[in-house]
Amino acid sequence: MKGRVLVVDDDTALAEMLGIVLRGEGFEPSFVADGDKALAAFRDAKPDLVLLDLMLPGRDGIEVCRLIRAESGVPIVMLTAKSDTVDVVVGLESGADDYIVKPFKPKELVARIRARLRRSEEPAPEQLSIGDLVIDVAGHSVKREGMSIALTPLEFDLLVALARKPWQVFTREVLLEQVWGYRHAADTRLVNVHVQRLRSKVEKDPERPEIVVTVRGVGYKAGPS
């Protein structure tokens, strides 16, 4: 299993501790403490996942997140101390796939990282369609009328989860479990933000979604093919 993890954190003690835990779980951590150097370190290390602290000297985590997302779909997990503020939403909107609130347990962190990395291990040839989109699951591509649409792995997973059962309405909790791998209910803002991000990429008119339809009071479902 691939396991290169880039830790972007300015707190040296925490970074070292993260390193100990990650190594203990079989990952290969690399570290960067400065937001300004984060992008260069990302290009050097080519990690499979980024652990990103939101509060950084130099460029802050949000900015780093945006920069990384601009050139790669690699999973990004934010570390944040503030779960209740807009920071989380801003972080998610800037491209983070998941977040974890300090203080967290090592097992929780590792589970979250594994959940983000797991999806790369299930290449099953499968062709799905949702609305006017054609999804090649194994090839990890989404096409509308032959035009490819770039999605991050997480967005792709979200779309596939909806497309596999077009008859089913998914509650946010079910999606959290299937896509993010949460066993217990967590912040449904994750789902809301990522559905918005997904819609902005795949919908013709994100104001009137046809691919990912909201079922008021329940959740989301795939639009009619």
Partner: peptide, 21 residues
């Protein structure tokens, strides 16, 4: 409160992880 939140939580995370290990 916000500052305390962050300032206190980061070392606590380290302690927490160390304690778990």
């Amino acid at each position: 409160v916000s500052d305390v939140s962050h300032e206190l939580r980061t070392p606590l995370t380290t302690v927490r992880m160390a304690a778990d290990v």
